[in-house]
């Protein structure tokens, strides 16, 4: 029962740390790497607040052992912006009221990013389906859906440019 050496790739950067085997990816991100943008609301897979991208797919960091993340690409909300420039989804969320308290926001942003990577122009009902594993208590979801549609439009515009 000893700590284990862990080599991860987080937001494109290689990081090494030593962790207790019981630590989930969520705990390592927040407590060992200081990446507190990833949130938690239950730690049991019941809210979606801790969602991050692992190899491009949204997964719940509270139910992934950090030890199982070696050689996988992890992306957190801290990795979304390009330099000082917000990712189009982030900008749309900020502009359109998709983030009220902002607590469920990182998980939803990453979930939406993965959706748009597969389906660049999803319908509102596809968006609702994609974010149905992320509980939000503030917005009623409507402005989130609209922000994802707007983010998709802005990403489209960027691609055309």
């Amino acid at each position: 029962m000893r700590h284990a050496q862990l080599a991860l790739s987080v937001n494109g950067e290689a990081v090494e740390t030593s962790v207790a085997p019981y630590k989930t990816l969520l705990e390592v991100l927040r407590e060992d790497l200081g990446l507190t943008g990833t949130k938690h609301g239950c730690e049991l897979g019941e809210c979606g607040a801790c969602a991050v991208l692992i190899d491009g797919e949204p997964q719940l960091s509270c139910l992934v052992l950090a030890l199982e993340c070696e050689a996988r690409e992890i992306e957190t909300v801290e990795g979304m912006a390009r330099g000082a420039q917000l990712h189009p989804l982030q900008a749309a969320f900020a502009d359109l009221g998709a983030a009220q308290c902002g607590y469920c926001t990182p998980g939803i942003l990453l979930t939406a990013k993965a959706l748009l990577a597969r389906e660049p122009r999803p319908t509102p009902s596809r968006i609702k389906e994609a974010i149905s594993g992320n509980l939000c208590r503030c917005t009623g979801y409507q402005q989130i859906v609209e922000a994802i549609e707007e983010g998709a439009r802005r990403m489209d515009d960027e691609r055309r440019r």
Binding site: R30, E31, G34, L35, T36, G37, T38, K39, H40, T76, V77, E78, M80, A81, L86, Q90, A91, F93, A94, D95, G97, A99, C101, G102, Y103, T105, P106, L109
Partner: peptide
């Protein structure tokens, strides 16, 4: 308008109590 604290909320920079170490 974008809310004044909008950028912090979408970048994960809003510091909630449990984010303090």
């Amino acid at each position: 308008r974008r809310r004044v604290d909008g950028r912090a909320k979408v970048t994960g920079q809003t510091r909630f109590a449990d984010d303090f170490a």
